[in-house]
Design a protein around this nucleic acid. Structure first.
Lengths: 228, 228, 228, 228
DNA sequence: TATGAATGAGTCTTCATTCAT
DNA sequence: GATGAATGAAGACTCATTCAT
């Protein structure tokens, strides 16, 4: 599912290069995309000029057009790069975990840490996916589902092994995904108040444990366990 | 907390009008902002031209500059309008609730329903707040905190009256806020699969109830109750 | 066949204006086209910038794009304008002619005089028609055929009334057309050597009279009268 | 008059090469010019990129700049090549002709056939000569006069030997030249309707024979024989 | 007040030309 | 000699903003 590192930017979805040499294309694209993520993340897609990206990447404007068809291509590969890096890094961080619950916790921690290290990039993927044409937007959504599957898999494992109650996997997964994203989307609120790891611990505590008291459960019986 | 309707868009936060007549200013701004929200929401801020907004609002380009200083002013008031409408409508929907838990549920339902009725507008506030200059960005964040306070208040009431366990109010509130926003941000995923109300019921079930089994609690003792 | 003067540039073949007012559109387009013909004629289409045309027309760059979709639109209407002016002016110059031969001579003179007054424009139509996309290129050819028909009509009249021998109308017409065009295409050769009227008189003498002597006719019997 | 083949494109009129080897320069230039004529003829000078020419010629972009100073050099030598090829090929086709009239006819046929085989190239010379700087434009005109001299010579021979009436050589020559060029310039009209040879036969019939009837001659006495 | 024609600074994109390998 | 990656100046086109009516 996750692509092998290095194979990534090689020949992605319809972005054409005027240069043949695979290795060079790969290197240049990385160089440019890195600068683009930084600028797009900071200022947004439309507010960033190709010239700024070129400047930051230390290349000429013309060079960018040797490796990308147009500005939208740069955005597209930038967003893919962000999402792919999640797919790549999260599994690595979970490698040594012994049991499902530990792996679950490690995955959420890893997800949030990766996001913490790329707040701008994450916000970029949120803000600017809509600037892509439809087919590409769908590809991006697909990639997001792949990342979600990393979480969903952990949740299912916990459910199957009797660590979680009979749980609404879909909703819980989305809760966890939004929780991770919130660290980037609401960075202005959380940063400075706590570390990522504290954030995750507090969040998991809230999500995994009982909130309603017995009295609350009696009052709000409707929807108190799985619905739909 | 919610401003009185009609007083709202009059002359907020440094947006200047060349027209004197308060009532007229108010009427025109509403007319224009309505069109702007529609267009910004659908296409994004940068991809929308003043001319398009004028067309949609049924006024001339010049007229917009009679009531707004520049394009950013229009975006600013559009975003404020969206957030204010939440602050206004949510309390209305909760009016008749008898007890804290019912009020809590009603609030979350109301929040999500309002968002459901304004998916584009909600996404707009997410995507384009960064296009505002800093001072205004902060004002928008402030407004968001006011909305969050509606939820936080309900959570606190439930906690105080023994309906909720001793809970991490801040984190739970943000979970609920993100849950509501997710209905808009991930509309492409949820829409068609369920109604808003089903979404809320399933979400609350996940958030309020125990996820960990007793065995799970023993394994993952760390962080099993409040942290931080 | 020839359009009424003034009706011309009103709403031509798919060139769209952002301005509604017909009279204004007409005036501005004329103003811009006049400048464009001058520049395109002197330097060619590609070597002329929109900015140059704007400068010569005394308007801003942006204005041109209020009245034309793109640069090719300007070229297209410029070429049409040139051809239409032929269709308009030639018949006027022939008005008073009494008999077919006189009308024939007057038409050729008029054609060449109009070309003489617009050498650059004529060359423009020759050089740059190929720069138009196919559909428009065909429209231009159509217009050219309409002009040719002015000549062909005169030739036919002379033939029908026994002033010309049984003649190859198509070929003779094209000879005459090319003869007229040559005054523009080979201006560098003829200008300074003679006036247009002298040119026409000498040309008609060559075209209308016997070139072969009786002896020549005997030698070159093949093709000595109508072929094909 | 016609340059010896091989000597031609070597180092004409200020086009400088970075390569010394004469034979190589010659070979490479031919190779490149051939591709350039094809592309310029099809798309025009400005619409053709150096890269396209390189691709078509099967060489690298850099190589072209080893043998030409700039793009205009390529155009210049391409146009010269076209005109030179006329000067070369026409006399060859006339070799066996016994008498002046036959040679005249053979020359016109040859001219038109060469043009028929190079319609694009001929149009190229017409369209793009204006893209050359003045000195070179004049050189091209000079070359054209050399070609015209081929025709003029035949006309004069026919006149001197009593095959043609006392004729306006200059005008008749230009008529014949334009007639030949028309086969290229109006290819869209003539092609498909007839072959080149039919075209020439019909054209010569029109040009060489009497058009005016005796009655016509009486009416249009003015200019009925040589003027000027 | 309302209009919409006019402006021109700012952006993307192309492509002739250079130069290190 | 040959290559083709890199450069950056130049040009088409857009659109926020102004202003005369």
């Amino acid at each position: 599912m996750a692509l092998k590192p290095g194979a990534r930017a090689a020949a992605p979805a319809g972005v054409k290069s005027k240069v043949e040499d695979r290795a060079l294309v790969d290197r240049r694209r990385r160089q440019i995309i890195k600068a683009a993520i930084e600028r797009f993340g900071k200022q947004g897609y439309h507010a960033t000029t190709i010239s700024e990206i070129a400047g930051r990447a230390g290349v000429s404007v013309g060079l960018i057009y040797q490796y990308f068809g147009d500005k939208e291509d740069v955005l597209f590969l930038a967003i893919l790069e962000v999402l792919d890096s999640y797919l790549e890094r999260i599994p690595l961080a979970v490698a040594g975990s012994r049991n499902p619950l530990e792996r679950f916790r490690a995955t959420v921690h890893a997800y949030c840490r990766v996001i913490d290290a790329n707040v701008d990039a994450t916000v970029l993927a949120y803000r600017e996916t809509k600037s892509l044409r439809k087919a590409r937007r769908n590809l991006v959504k697909q990639k997001e589902l792949e990342t979600n599957a990393l979480i969903a898999g952990c949740v299912e494992d916990c459910a199957r092994t009797g660590i979680f109650e009979d749980v609404d996997v879909e909703l819980l997964t989305y809760q966890l995904v939004m929780f991770a994203h919130a660290w980037a989307l609401k960075a202005w609120h959380f940063r400075g108040k706590m570390t990522v790891d504290q954030y995750v611990d507090r969040g998991l505590a809230v999500m995994l444990n009982q909130v309603l008291t017995p009295r609350g459960r009696r009052q709000g019986g409707r929807g108190a366990r799985r619905v739909g």
